[in-house]
């Protein structure tokens, strides 16, 4: 019979090695993020020497400049508006659809389920150009007929596009949950005289709360962080912008103007809300992922 355990010193070496690797990975993740936080309170002159020095003092002016001069404050409002509106719209549209597709058999239900599944394989960024052209052509037509277009550079339209393109993943995740419920819930409700609508809103949706929270978390992160669609549909130089696009512009401007402090303050402004949210809900997020499976 072979030895059951490795030798003690070999075991200790292995343990040491594991901790060493884990800590190295932790450092490569935490140090750059922490570095940006420290850099955001440094003065511009502090960026020309050793990058590992601590800030000489806390220079809040970076945040004031980023918020006002670089308009990150306005962009923050835009991002909050677009994200919130897209989330509300997505839930209002996706919840009933997912419920019906998962629990009712009707003509075409199989086809519709397959269609939304196929949508999981269409990446939004593959189709951003035709979406842009469609809205642009719509604007041209509106201008001809009504004298003014409103489809491009419109935060509401952006939110609608976000919500629509998130539908396949959201419906996939929610239907997965609805399919696991027993049919007894509805039957009991129907016997008590509840209609389809009441049953759905009062009985089923409250039960789906954990899945709904997962959906909100994932989509919040993807809407808040998205920048390609936003950049394409909100391309007017003077028009409204979302935070990531504003940050991208700030980073590009920084290459010529070298205002490092403001740029890092902008980075902090963009990532702070997601980090705070993450710290509050990190358990739900990682558990929800285990339950929901995949991100599209």
């Amino acid at each position: 019979m072979k030895k059951k355990k490795h030798t003690d010193s070999g075991e200790r070496l292995y343990q040491f090695f594991i901790y060493f690797v884990l800590i190295m990975l932790t450092i490569t993740i935490l140090v750059p993020v922490a570095w940006v936080f420290l850099a955001s309170v440094k003065q511009n002159s502090e960026f020309y020497g050793n990058p590992w020095t601590m800030p000489k003092g806390i220079y809040w002016q970076n945040f004031v400049d980023a918020w006002n001069t670089a308009k990150m404050g306005d962009y923050m409002l835009n991002s909050v508006f677009v994200t919130a509106m897209a989330l509300v719209l997505l839930l209002v549209v996706a919840l009933p659809a997912a419920y019906c597709l998962a629990r009712f058999k009707f003509r075409g239900s199989k086809f519709l389920n397959m269609l939304f599944m196929a949508g999981l394989f269409i990446n939004v960024n593959y189709i951003v150009v035709p979406i842009f052209l469609m809205l642009r052509d719509g604007d041209v037509w509106l201008k001809k007929v009504f004298g003014g277009g409103f489809l491009l550079n419109n935060l509401v339209v952006l939110a609608i596009v976000y919500a629509s393109t998130a539908l396949p993943f959201t419906i996939y995740l929610l239907s997965g949950y609805f399919q696991t419920l027993a049919h007894d819930y509805e039957e009991a409700a129907y016997i008590d005289g509840a209609g389809y609508n009441t049953t759905m809103w009062k009985i089923i949706f409250p039960m789906a709360k954990p899945s709904i929270i997962t959906v909100i978390l994932f989509n919040f992160l993807s809407f808040w962080n998205e920048y390609i669609i936003s950049m394409t549909l909100m391309s007017s130089a003077k028009g409204a912008k979302t935070l990531p696009v504003g940050l991208l512009n700030l980073m590009q401007a920084q290459q010529s103007a070298a205002q490092y402090g403001i740029m890092y303050a902008g980075l902090v402004i963009v990532m702070l809300p997601t980090l705070i949210l993450y710290i509050c809900v990190q358990n739900k997020l990682t558990q929800g992922m285990a339950a929901g499976g995949l991100k599209g």
């Binding site: 750059p32 850099a39 020497g49 990531p244 990190q282 997020l285 990682t286």
Partner: peptide, 30 residues
């Protein structure tokens, strides 16, 4: 460790690009 390793996934790619431009900067980069 689990909480830390997941952090990059919640950041916007724009933020990550900013972080890595500080890492990769030729002069005084990390």
């Amino acid at each position: 460790f689990r909480i830390v390793f997941y952090i990059p996934n919640i950041l916007s790619i724009v933020v990550i690009a900013g972080i890595f431009s500080a890492i990769y900067k030729p002069e005084n980069g990390m």
